[in-house]
Design a protein around this nucleic acid. Structure first.
Lengths: 243, 243
DNA sequence: CGACAAATTGAGCCGGATCAAACTGAGTGG
DNA sequence: CCACTCAGTTTGATCCGGCTCAATTTGTCG
């Protein structure tokens, strides 16, 4: 399944739209936006008037504190990071382009009527934010209760599975624009220790990170090391409708 | 503001209900449920058919892995932990009563029609799940990137502010049914180190935890130590309506 | 070629984990 | 009313995973 490049396509991938719903989603004005690696799209404290679907590239959700940055999530094509600002006016995180990105931007003034008039669509967007919360939950465990090698392994498993779901990875690896700094911010490890951990994983013959690419040599051992269970990603999430 | 004991009361506290909405919320069948401390209400993997509002007591949202438990959130009266299961069929966390609890239980088969017919109510419930996600985000930072004393201090600040919002705490402290084991699971610290950290905080004259009570001796220093900023709790959260 | 960000490696240190033991205190049952 | 139990707390001793800081190397791009 390739990554959807519009909200309409993403919605269609999850539920069967009625004609009215499809029409409403189709007539949503979308703007395209490109950004360069490292650009900050949203800053904590902002009151965004739009949200965006990632068409291409990765976006980090992060918090900064005493100049130290924590990455809370890495959003992949098809994701809508910062959707929370649709109903929580002020955003409390930064959104940063990890590499060059292309986005499809939707005005909240268009999305909110959509949600009010089409409850099934509202519930679908809602469920996306629930999946994000579930991922946050797993990251609390990852960052707070696991050893360095397991943290890194788990992060890689998650990324590969999420990217695979939109056709951007397979069990042999994926493009990985994250630097070791990023990996440190996402796992709560120092860059130096990330480096040593990657070296160990390489020497173990589990994976190689090099030249902006993650090459997985032994997926099974990676999963075992991470003790990775993808349930929390709700990749088959279809909201249950009871009318 | 006392803690709401029904969904209706909680909704009224956040938005002005239309007559139709109030009537719909009023006619929601609710069941009361009491549980003893330590009881598990929901287990990861469950497919709950109901959600509940906490009337009294604390509930931990937790994950277990190799017998090691991580607490992801501590829900207080007025909260609706596990609401995610309304639209994410299978729950991926445990819900555990920390002390004796009283709950108001609502069937999903009643809540889902409510959401479909009353979009403003749907959006309000949605926003509650968004606040939960925001709290998760802050916990990723807490547990992954902060020193032991700051973790504990931050957790206490959060609990006191959230409990204060429902009339169960003030700046001088609150009832605290959490054991040092719980505190360890919530902060990613070993029970032994929690104990030492609490001793340090006591010797510093910042707070005393004893006899199931948190006594705060110096709120300002506690906030400074934690570098606590309550924005992420969205205590004044009122969804923006654009019809 | 020079500049600059990222990756790599080493040395030394320290915060917090682990393990074990002793201590408290709130039931519980005789 | 006491003895017993058991969960939770407290403390000590020791260890180690990961941090810090600094230096060096690599890779990339203008």
């Amino acid at each position: 399944m390739p990554s959807p490049s519009t909200l309409l396509a993403k919605l269609e991938g999850v539920i069967d739209l009625t004609e009215a719903e499809a029409e409403a989603a189709r007539s949503l004005p979308a703007r395209r936006l490109r950004l360069a690696a490292g650009e900050t799209l949203r800053r904590a404290g902002d009151k965004p008037t739009s949200s965006f679907l990632i068409v291409e590239g990765l976006v980090a959700t992060a918090k900064i504190e005493d100049g130290r940055r924590s990455i809370l999530n890495v959003s992949v094509p098809g994701d809508v990071p910062g959707l929370s600002s649709l109903y929580l006016r002020v955003l409390d995180v930064d959104l940063v382009a990890i590499d060059d990105c292309e986005l499809a931007v939707y005005q909240h003034d268009d999305l909110r009527p959509l949600c009010l008039h089409h409850p099934r669509l509202a519930v679908t967007l809602w469920s996306w934010t629930l999946v994000t919360a579930s991922i946050y939950g797993e990251w609390i465990v990852n960052v707070g209760h696991r050893s360095a090698p397991r943290r890194i392994a788990h992060l890689f498993c998650e990324l590969v599975i999420r990217l695979e779901a939109v056709g951007l990875a397979d069990r042999s690896g994926c493009e990985l624009p994250l630097t070791q700094i990023h990996l440190g911010e996402a796992t709560g490890l120092s860059p130096a220790h990330v480096n040593r951990t990657l070296r160990d994983l390489r020497q173990e013959g589990i994976l190689i990170v090099s030249g902006g690419r993650l090459s997985i040599l032994d997926w099974d051992r990676l999963v075992t090391l991470a003790q990775f269970r993808p349930d929390y990603l709700y990749l088959s999430a279809r909201p249950p409708w009871s009318d």
